[in-house]
Amino acid sequence: MGGDRLTEVLDATYDCLTRYGVRRTTVDDIAGAMGVSRSAVYQYVRGKDDAVRRLAERLHTRALERARRAASADAPPATRVRGVLEAKLGLVLELAGDSPHTAELLDEKARLFGDICHGFTAGLRTLLIGVFTGAGLVDACLGDANPAERDAAGPARPAADTRRAGAGEPDPRWPGGAGAAGSVGAVGPAEAADICIALVLGLESVPGGEQLLRPAVDALLAGLLGEARAAP
C-alpha cells in the first residue's frame, strides 16, 4: 500500500509541475492535488525536492527500461538502435508535450536531478555501444589498445573475415563486407554511439522530429555499418 501511496505522491507532483514548474511547486500544492494533509505527504517523501527527484528518477528509469528491451531484442542492428533512440526521444516528447514546465525534468544541469538525466544518457550510450559491437563495428585503433580496452570493446574482427577466401568477394556475415570495414574503420562503437546520441539530441528540437527519426537512423547506419537499407 505504501508503494501505491508513493505513486500517488509522484503523480500529484507531476500534475503540480505541469502548472507551476519545479521552483514554484510546494508540498502544500502536492497535498492539495492529492486531497490529503501536508503531513500525509511527508510520510512518503522528505519534501518537495525529494518528490521531484523521485519523479525524475521514475520517468528516466522507465525510459531506460524501454531502451534496454529495444537493445536486447531479436532484431537487426538498425531496429535495435532506432528503438534505443526512440526511448530517449519519446521521453522528451512526453515531457515537453505535457507542459513547458515538465520539460525541466530533462535538464542535466539541474541541481535536484541533473545526475539522473546524465546517468540516463550514459545508460543509453552503453546500450548503443553494445549494439554496435555486436554488429561488428570495431575501432581501428584497438590493435594498439591495452588488453582491458580490447576486452571492453569485444573481440576484434579478423582481417580475413572481410572477404571470402580466394574469391575476392565481401563476406556476407559482416554488414557491408570489406567496403563497410574500409569506411568505418576509424569509427568505433563508442564513437558511433556518440553520433547517434547527437542525432537524437538534434531531432528533439525539430518539429516532427519523431517522423524524421527512422530515415535519419537509416541514413546514419548506412554509413556506419554499410547497410544497404534499414530493417523493416
Rank of each mutant, 00 (worst) to 15 (best):
M1K: 11
L6R: 06
L6F: 00
T7L: 09
T7P: 02
T7Q: 09
E8P: 00
V9K: 01
L10C: 03
A12K: 04
L17G: 06
T18I: 05
R23H: 15
T25D: 12
T25P: 05
I30L: 07
A31C: 05
A33L: 02
M34Y: 07
V36I: 12
V41G: 06
V41C: 09
Y42W: 11
Q43K: 15
Y44D: 04
V45K: 05
R46P: 01
K48R: 15
D49A: 15
D49T: 13
A51F: 01
L55Y: 00
A63Y: 00
L64S: 02
E65F: 05
A67V: 03
R68D: 03
D74Q: 08
P76S: 00
P76V: 03
P77T: 02
P77G: 00
R80M: 08
R82L: 11
V84R: 06
E86A: 15
L89Q: 11
L89W: 09
L91M: 06
L91S: 07
V92T: 14
G97A: 09
T102N: 04
E104H: 08
L105S: 05
A110M: 03
A110E: 09
L112K: 02
L112I: 05
G114R: 01
G114H: 02
G114L: 00
H118V: 10
G119L: 01
L128H: 06
L128R: 06
I129Q: 12
G130Y: 05
V131Q: 04
T133N: 07
G134E: 12
A135R: 04
G136L: 00
L137M: 07
A140M: 11
C141H: 14
G143S: 12
D144V: 15
A145R: 07
N146M: 09
P147F: 10
P147R: 06
A148Y: 14
R150F: 05
R150I: 08
A156Y: 01
T162H: 07
R164V: 14
A165Q: 10
G166M: 04
E169Y: 05
R173D: 12
P175Q: 05
G177Q: 04
G179F: 04
A180N: 03
G182M: 08
S183Q: 13
V184P: 02
V187S: 01
G188E: 09
P189S: 06
A190Q: 13
E191V: 12
A192Y: 03
A193Q: 09
C196G: 13
A198R: 10
G202P: 14
G202D: 10
E204A: 13
S205M: 10
V206K: 05
G209H: 12
E210S: 15
E210I: 13
Q211G: 11
P215L: 13
P215K: 12
A216P: 12
V217I: 14
D218R: 14
L220I: 14
L220A: 14
L221N: 08
A222W: 11
L224D: 06
L225K: 03
E227C: 13
E227W: 12
A228C: 07
R229N: 14
R229D: 14
A230G: 15
